[in-house]
Design a protein around this nucleic acid. Structure first.
Length: 412
DNA sequence: TCTGGGGTCCTAGGACCC
DNA sequence: TCTGGGGTCCTAGGACCC
């Protein structure tokens, strides 16, 4: 446990770099990384936000998550390219297999971040870190930052130092010099809300937070307070989790391209999302006991209701019927901008479906499975419910694999 | 043509029980 | 006769991450 060496590998402007590499490989002359550019969603679908930015775009003050409209105000000749998640997943996978050559203990933290336990490298860790960085650049075409320390938190903080294409260490003895002078908002798990609270009490740097009295911060900000206080002091000892650990919830959502103001259409969106949530749960052999519906109105106000069922389910029908009930008890008639359905309190199917379940419908289960199979093979739109015909609403909503399949062979 | 989608964890209040 | 105090479950909402 002591003297671990942990790497945190972070792809620089991931989506944008991957997009740039792909385009260069396919004959494009301009490197998106060298001009003010962003990867952004489709504004016509009201998905118009910045997903990733180039360093020149960053110099205009453009930040991830802001609207493309506002990004364009900051930089009128901004180049905007649409995302392609399948492409990014491939790039991410290539990086993972390269990293696998260096350590068997790898945790994929997100599509563009990886933790690696490199304790076995002993004194060679720095040399290997540079080797990994250079190999990714040469063989895969994009750059990464690598942060190195004795735990995941410090490694992650280190990889966030100067970018791009850098290796940084942040060992416990370097905390005071390298981490404590940073603004408190830079610390992992301190967002805008907490930063404001801290600033209001005169705490501006990570060092100031670190030196607070432990009981004081706990009494004030409870568990999250204790967590950030520990982080500020470099205290964190979680394992690099190699195996894919249990998923806790399965949810899908969509921002509609127009405000929805009637029940009939709202139901269709709920059904299309239920299809995806159910399909994903069945695919993972999981069932959930809690169904939650969350709505966002056209003033961006979000509210939610949830229902705990008597027995866990992964049936599209049950998820849909429950969502409808929840929708009816909560909707205040304000036009809706976004729908979300989440299935949680998940358990493995073996546990819940062995017992006698009053609501368990074997015929429906078989039908769902058969439809899933067809959809995985021929695309989400290969088999659809008739109510979606000519509706202009996608029959299955959610997920990152947004490939549009033109074929439409069957109607349910 | 202004503001996505996928998650995790925590808190506070009310119901209910003893 | 003026109203305790735990514990658990459920729900709504909020904070954070990429």
């Amino acid at each position: 446990m002591q003297n671990r060496i942990i790497f945190h590998i972070d792809v620089n402007s991931a989506y944008l770099s991957w997009e740039a590499v792909y385009r260069l490989q396919h004959g494009e002359k301009i490197d998106l990384r060298k001009i003010p550019s962003v990867v952004g969603g489709d504004e016509r679908k009201r998905h118009g936000i910045v997903l990733a930015k180039s360093i020149p775009a960053k110099e205009y003050g453009i930040v991830t998550g802001e609207s493309l409209y506002s990004a364009r105000q900051k930089c009128p000749n901004l180049t905007i390219v649409p995302p392609n998640y399948e492409r990014y997943l491939k790039a991410s996978n290539s990086m993972l297999s390269l990293l696998n050559e260096y350590s068997p203990l790898i945790q994929r933290f997100s599509i563009d971040e990886v933790f690696m336990d490199c304790s076995h490298l002993e004194d060679n860790f720095l040399k290997i870190a540079y080797e990994i960085k250079e190999r990714i650049k040469k063989e895969l075409g994009f750059t990464v930052n690598i942060g190195i320390s004795t735990n995941k938190l410090l490694a992650k903080m280190a990889s966030d130092f100067k970018k791009p294409d850098k290796v940084h260490t942040l060992f416990p003895e370097e905390i005071e010099e390298k981490m404590w002078p940073l603004p408190v908002g830079k610390l992992f798990m301190i967002g805008v809300k907490t930063q404001k609270k801290l600033n209001n009490r005169g705490i501006y740097t990570i060092g100031q937070l670190a030196k607070l009295d432990r009981e004081y911060i706990y009494a004030w900000l409870k568990k999250p307070g204790l967590l950030i206080w520990k982080y500020a002091n470099g205290i964190e000892n979680s394992e690099v989790k190699n195996t894919s650990y249990a998923v806790k919830s399965i949810g899908n959502s969509t921002t509609t391209s127009y405000d929805v103001d009637n029940k009939k259409e709202a139901y269709m969106f709920l059904l299309a999302i239920s299809e995806m949530v159910g399909m994903r749960a069945r695919d993972l052999n999981l069932s959930g006991r809690v169904v939650s519906v969350s709505l966002k109105d056209n003033d961006f106000f979000s509210y939610s209701h949830q229902k705990k069922l008597n027995t866990a389910t992964n049936s599209t029908k049950t998820i849909y019927e429950t969502s409808k009930k929840l929708f009816n008890e909560m909707w205040n008639k304000k036009p809706i901008r976004r729908f979300n359905i989440t299935l949680s309190e998940l358990s493995s199917n073996e546990f819940c479906q062995l017992s006698l379940l009053e609501d368990y419908d074997e015929k429906e289960e078989k039908l769902n499975r058969a439809i899933d199979k067809i959809r995985y093979k021929y695309g989400y739109n290969s088999i659809i419910r008739s109510c979606f015909l000519h509706s202009g609403i996608k029959p299955v909503i959610g997920g990152v694999m947004e490939e549009e399949y033109p074929m439409m062979s069957s109607i349910i």
